[in-house]
Design a protein around this nucleic acid. Structure first.
Length: 402
DNA sequence: TCTGGGGTCCTAGGACCC
DNA sequence: TCTGGGGTCCTAGGACCC
């Protein structure tokens, strides 16, 4: 436990550091800020990165748009109503990926102990960096200055004794802030349980039903009661969060993905079985391409089907031998899809994903092993082309020589 | 407020084996 | 023929994150 004294051989050897040595660095309004940096005409204006259509959502928005009430994840139509002056730009993930690399490089120049979670945020363990860079606050400030200077982006930094406290601290000081939490209990106590990292709407609602509204309420609730009401895992997890979270090391090594997927919400719901088959093939191709690029193979194909009613279902098929072959993925995805009887209901979204991934040389072999199309798949392909035109599925995309 | 796309992790039931 | 308990795998759904 953080802060406890550990004894070994009857003599006190370690006092676990309670110092705020875990940093959480988070780029403010990341996608929108990258766009404003790239195009000066967008600076100072309410900007939304995302698709403006009826089924689009806000991927990221500038603080000018936030001032009007726009939030990430909000449907674009609602964002337009709230902020008619907002400019929409499409997402350019390559550009964000590039900035994200630069961000990680800056952080690694301060400490090798960097855990990246997503493009725009990372945890750093700076316990070994004080002799070079000074106090935690000085370190956080130096990081913010470097990010602003080299990447032209604003980054907020929170610091605490655990990842959880650091994350909550960076949230609390956004935008363009820095916060070093020395006294975790005092910092956490007044926070609404619904604002905790890891607590979403469903858990917040259950906690509210139990009369638990703030972290200090949560702290006063016996862990046994939390486990009974919310399950072993979630109950224990929440009890730990109230006490500052788990005292875990950062995962600084390379990370192997556990699944690869592609999904799409259609502008209008699909009713035609042929069109659905064609879309499943397109999605399977996207998944197979990315698996090939990443040198992975997998064993379980899952299709996701969201109906016009928004009811969402999944069906999956698992095979013994890992594969990366498009035609095998397509066949399994179709089998899985067909096991779901959609009846006459229209389809709003389809997704195909591969899990049970294996990495390494064997996977690389398998992911490159693109066998000739099965007769069945070739027939499906021909039928798709007949109905939707030659460009519906291009040989170049499907049978790329790499 | 009619709700994206990329993921991770957990739960629960059933099949199957010992 | 009925009765066990444990372990593993598969499947479907759901919560949560950015």
């Amino acid at each position: 436990m953080a802060g406890g004294h550990e004894r070994a051989f009857g003599r006190e050897v370690v006092e676990r550091s309670r110092a705020a040595d875990i940093l959480h660095a988070d780029l403010d309004a990341f996608y929108a800020s990258v766009e404003q940096e790239a195009d000066p005409s967008l600076r100072g204006r309410p900007l939304i990165v995302g698709w403006p259509g009826p089924r689009g959502v806000v991927l990221s928005c500038s603080y000018e748009a936030r001032a009007a009430g726009v939030r990430n994840g909000m449907p674009s139509m609602r964002a337009k109503r709230l902020c008619p002056a907002a400019v929409f730009v499409p997402a350019r993930f390559d550009a964000y990926q590039e900035k994200s690399r630069g961000f990680r490089e800056v952080l690694r120049s301060f400490t090798p102990l960097v855990e990246t979670t997503w493009m725009d945020e990372a945890f750093c363990d700076v316990s070994g960096a004080h002799t070079l860079y000074g106090s935690t606050l000085e370190l956080a400030t130096a990081i913010r200055r470097r990010v602003a200077g080299e990447l032209k982006l604003i980054c907020s930094v929170g610091a605490g004794s655990t990842k959880f406290v650091a994350k909550m601290a960076s949230r609390a000081c956004k935008p363009n802030g820095v916060l070093v939490v020395g006294d975790s209990p005092a910092f956490l106590s007044p926070i609404d349980v619904g604002d905790l990292w890891g607590v979403g709407d469903a858990t917040a609602a259950r906690l509210h039903e139990l009369g638990i509204r703030t972290v200090s309420d949560l702290l006063a609730t016996p862990a046994t009661l939390l486990r009974r009401e919310l399950g072993q895992s979630l109950g224990s997890h929440l009890a730990a969060l109230a006490r500052g979270g788990h005292d875990e090391e950062l995962a600084t090594g390379d990370y192997d993905a556990k699944s690869v997927g592609a999904e799409e919400t259609f502008e209008t719901d699909l009713a035609s079985e042929d069109r659905i088959q064609a879309e499943i093939l397109r999605l399977a191709d996207r998944v197979a391409s990315r698996m090939s690029a990443g040198g992975v193979a997998g064993r379980c194909v899952t299709v996701k089907i969201r109906l016009a009613s928004f009811a969402t279902h999944t069906r999956s098929r698992t095979v013994r031998e890992p594969t990366g072959d498009l035609w095998t993925i397509y066949r399994l995805a179709r089998e899985a899809y067909e096991s779901f009887g959609r009846g006459r209901q229209r389809v709003r979204l389809l997704g195909v994903s591969m899990s049970g991934l294996v990495h390494g040389p064997l996977a690389q072999q398998l992911s490159l092993d693109r066998t000739p199309p099965h007769a069945e798949a070739a027939k499906a392909l021909a039928s798709v082309r007949r109905r939707f035109g030659q460009d519906a599925l291009t040989p170049a995309r499907l049978l790329r020589p790499d």
